[in-house]
Design a protein around this nucleic acid. Sequence first.
RNA 1: GGUCCUGUGGCCGAGUGGCUAGGCAGAGCUCUGCAAAAGCUUCCACAGCGGUUCGAAUCCGCUCGGGACCUCCA
Length: 504
Amino acid sequence: MASLKVYNSLTRQKEVFTPINAPYVGMYVCGPTVSGESHLGHARPFITFDVVFRYLQHLGYKVRYVRNITDAGHFEEEGREAEDKIATKAVLEKLEPMELVQKYTNMFHWAMQQFNNLPPSIEPTATGHIVEQIEMIKQIIADGYAYEANGSVYFDVEKYNTDFSKKGQPYGILSGRNLEDQLDTTRELDNQDEKQNKSDFALWKKAPPEHIMRWQSPWGEGFPGWHIECSAMSSKYLGKKFDIHGGGMDLQFPHHECEIAQSTVCNHVAPANYWLHNNMITINGKKMGKSYNNVIKLSELFAGTHPILEQAYAPNTVRFFILQSHYRGTLDFSNEALIAAEKAAKRLWEAYEWLSKQQVSDATPAATDIELDKKVNALVDDFEVFMSDDFSTPKVLANMFELVPIINGIKDKHTPITALSNSTVLHLQQSLKTYLEDIFGLVAPSAANTAVLDGVLQLLIEVRSQAKASKDFVTSDKIRNQLMALGIQLKDEKDGSVSYSVSN
RNA sequence: GGUCCUGUGGCCGAGUGGCUAGGCAGAGCUCUGCAAAAGCUUCCACAGCGGUUCGAAUCCGCUCGGGACCUCCA
């Protein structure tokens, strides 16, 4: 098993990954808030950690991957007025929060399937764990690190910081902030007067009358604070201390910082050993935001319906595009870049598909081109080296692209397959399959070919070949050009056969 | 304003102080009835200014630009 290194946000350096209780690995990733439709920004963390999940399993770990659904909070449906929440309407007319939550949860699951993300081992909901959250808050109060004020409960950040700094665990340990720097810079918010200090954060919020999601608690009717759900669910399903906590960089502060504080008080131990954060996606060099009007929903992305988009982009193209950059760098989204990714993914996949159909027995036990054989083995062997170096998917892909001309050279008979030993060919075939399909989770870029379509195309190819044989190029070109207009490209191979590829 | 990240060729993106990243686009050639596809070759780079060094895209400083976060919003 290769020694995996990961960049730990907590220590700000790459570290060898050592599970607490190998071969078991516990991984928690902050999931979506299902109060709206998922957008392009959501694609990055969930694809990134899907690949982490897949790679850990590839290395032989038994991973429990927990990703929550945040379905508790403040909900409004687009287009509906606040009056909808008032109880004077009939039950079926009123905004029912669980109906909204269900709708957006379904859409989220649909998008994850489109991306070919594996489902997490457990996908707990915040509303399903209110009891656990209340218990946790009670514990924090009992330990003296939270206080009640007017039906709400706040975490005492000052006290926590004072006490835990002595143990080397100050508030700000993850984000690199220190408490003193922040006190002056906070903007004005509601209910600040309830807090003893501006840096305190809510564990439980009293529900105002119009708030539609509310639960009974020792402090009255209300709803849980923003951060507590992840602490409650991660410790319930992964234990007080687990291996990996992941999420977007935007969550590092305050969300993850607060999780650490809460869990450390409750469980007397910091929650996770390794904190992994993916960077953000920008669009044409600008961050995604409502003010720029560049928030692209995933359904719009796949259909090409957002004004920014010049065409539709297949989920697989987006996935490939994301894997072409390292997860900790920002990634700029543009039509030009996506179109380039689409073409690149196609070229890579077609070479892979062709190779996977070749019989290894056609090669020979010993390579006739020792240099090439060595080169191929070196390129393939580096897949694992690169992936084990903090998941360097772009470097693995670069190596794959160096293999493409070699594979196509064999296909076009520039290079005999016997140049490589049969063990090398087998190694190449298996490694490409493992990395492209099992770890990267990529799929064939073209639309699904049905048996019927294939039959029709074989017929057309045969007719065209006959036309060509009798020098009837008008007919042969007509078949070729009209198929092209339909998105079906015919390719005259070197050996006289004809293949085709279907674009979406 | 504070904390942190970042600035690579037409576009997207790797990058260890000295050795080709890779993809897409462009140019030439080969193959082809013509194309496409594919193969081969090739152009284009390290924001700016200083410094350290035998040598810096890679280390340090400054300037300019971009980005994230700065608490009840997930």
